[in-house]
């Protein structure tokens, strides 16, 4: 486990840089209104970094865990920058507009999700890791199961309760 942690820390900046670069390329290429596909980004970064130094990665699951964490960092960094930009202005919170994706109207606060996830990590580190893989890494139930070496049924159970808990945390947060 100590080795695992160490390799994670040393590889994180590599993946982080690569994902940032790819995301910037995607944004230049794509037309406004189109959405980025996290799995596409992760896949592309994986192929490029594998070609570079295949011995660095234990397996694809290992890579996905690092990529999910990097995605979280990138998005939170952007959200914080935007909040700083708008400080004192009308809109101080950053909301994610789901209308972009599903045509729905629900929006929520990315920084609040990040903070709630930190609180969940104190209760259950595994569940917080699972949410990171699914929500920030864009992994499916099966991919998450592989990355965490647990069964898909266990992923679904953890996901169900973690999601309910996070939903309540965000309600409490917005009513406070």
């Amino acid at each position: 486990m100590a080795d695992d942690r160490q390799s994670l820390d040393s590889l994180l900046p590599v993946v982080y840089q690569e994902l940032r670069r790819l995301a910037a390329n995607y944004l230049r290429r794509e037309r406004p209104g189109q959405t980025l596909q996290p799995t596409g980004l992760v896949h592309e970064a994986y192929l490029r970094l594998m070609k570079d130094r295949p011995d660095r990665w234990q397996n694809r699951a290992h890579f996905c865990a690092i990529a999910a964490h990097s995605m979280r960092q990138i998005l939170i960094e952007r959200a914080r920058a935007r909040v700083a930009l708008k400080r004192g202005g009308v809109q101080a919170r950053v909301t994610l507009d789901e209308a972009l994706v599903a045509g729905g109207e629900q929006s929520f606060d990315l920084l609040a999700i990040d903070a709630a996830l930190e609180k969940l990590a104190a209760l259950d580190a595994e569940q917080a890791r699972l949410v990171e893989l699914r929500f920030f890494g864009g992994l499916t139930v099966e991919e998450t199961a592989e990355a965490m070496a647990i069964s898909p049924a266990t992923v679904k159970r953890h996901w169900a309760i973690a999601r309910a808990w996070l939903a309540r945390e965000l309600e409490d947060n917005s009513s406070a």
């Binding site: 959405t35 979280r72 952007r78 994610l96 972009l100 990315l110 929500f135």
Partner: peptide, 11 residues
Amino acid sequence: APAWNVAASLM
């Protein structure tokens, strides 16, 4: 939906 997707506007 994954954060990356819903946060596209952020990027």
